[in-house]
């Protein structure tokens, strides 16, 4: 072994290499952990500086003016993009409004029977909607309010000079005499075929006082009683028997999506 070591000219290398190996093996234990932690804490500011330096590229030094111009251009483009996005939203609103109005004009059931007065929904709280038409626009109490699909929205409950308060369908305060019709066929609403199954009083989302003879079921539609303007109120979801054995009740779901309601029509 000694001969080998003598032949090996790099004794110093062997000493240091063995020392490094010992260090390597000892580091598997917890001996140097505290020392390494202290060293890591001491180097923490250097690491932070290094992180900041990484973000500072050479391009920013040599092309700073060019980069500045580019950043200004990006800002301008972002502004332009924001304006254009606003314009797109505006156009989309016009498009939606146009579509709804076209649907309304194309409604064959109501030809020549109803005078529409368009209004914007300006507020919705609890059972009431506020619309931007009032006394000055000729709005009257008890006037019916429908949406663009001809679904019943509610009834005018209070009129101000420039606004009106509408009590919406589904509210317990709104009581209406209604008919229950068999299906969605257009002939039913036009009066060509007698599709009426039953009559009742709508209060909230419950139709009361329906005679037991009325053969109604889920899916039947609810409309205003003796009204041939084709205004739909809702759809029967459930039929319940009442305790008196004379009448029965039905639960109804409104056809209007109040969350998306923006325009309504006051009708005469």
């Amino acid at each position: 072994m000694t001969v080998l070591l003598k032949k090996f000219s790099q004794k110093r290398f062997l000493v240091y290499f063995l020392f490094a190996g010992a260090l390597f093996l000892l580091d598997f234990g917890p001996f140097f952990l505290s020392f390494k932690n202290v060293f890591a804490k001491l180097l923490q500011p250097v690491r932070l500086e290094a992180c900041q330096l990484r973000q500072f590229t050479l391009g920013k030094v040599f092309y700073s003016s060019r980069l500045k111009d580019q950043e200004e251009k990006i800002l301008d483009l972002e502004k332009e993009s924001a304006v254009m996005r606003g314009r797109i939203v505006e156009l989309q609103q016009i498009y939606d409004e146009n579509k709804r109005l076209r649907e309304l004009v194309g409604s064959a059931m109501t030809e020549g029977k109803i005078i529409y007065q368009p209004a914007w929904v300006i507020g919705h709280r609890g059972d009431y909607l506020m619309v931007n038409r009032g006394k000055e626009d000729g709005v009257m109490l008890e006037q019916l309010v429908i949406n663009e699909k001809h679904y019943f929205v509610g009834r005018v409950a209070e009129v101000f000079d420039r606004e009106a308060k509408v009590l919406v369908v589904g509210s317990a305060s709104l009581e209406l005499p209604v008919s229950v019709l068999s299906d969605w066929e257009r002939d039913c609403f036009a009066g060509a075929v007698d599709c009426q199954k039953a009559k009742g009083i709508l209060s909230g989302e419950i139709i009361k006082d329906i005679l037991r003879e009325g053969d109604i079921g889920a899916g039947d539609v609810v409309t205003l009683l003796d009204d041939h303007r084709g205004i739909l109120i809702g759809e029967i979801t459930q039929v319940k028997e009442s305790k008196d054995n004379i009448f029965k009740q039905a639960e109804m779901k409104s056809l209007v999506d109040f969350d998306r309601l923006t325009e309504v029509f006051l009708i005469n």
């Binding site: 290398f13 290499f17 490094a20 260090l23 390597f24 093996l25 000892l26 060293f39 890591a40």
Partner: peptide, 21 residues
């Protein structure tokens, strides 16, 4: 090598052996 290991939170002795080799 020891300094390098400490600075980069490596296993001690690794870089020493590499540099020596």
């Amino acid at each position: 090598g020891v300094w390098r290991d400490l600075a980069s939170w490596c296993h001690l002795g690794v870089w020493s052996m590499i540099f020596l080799a």
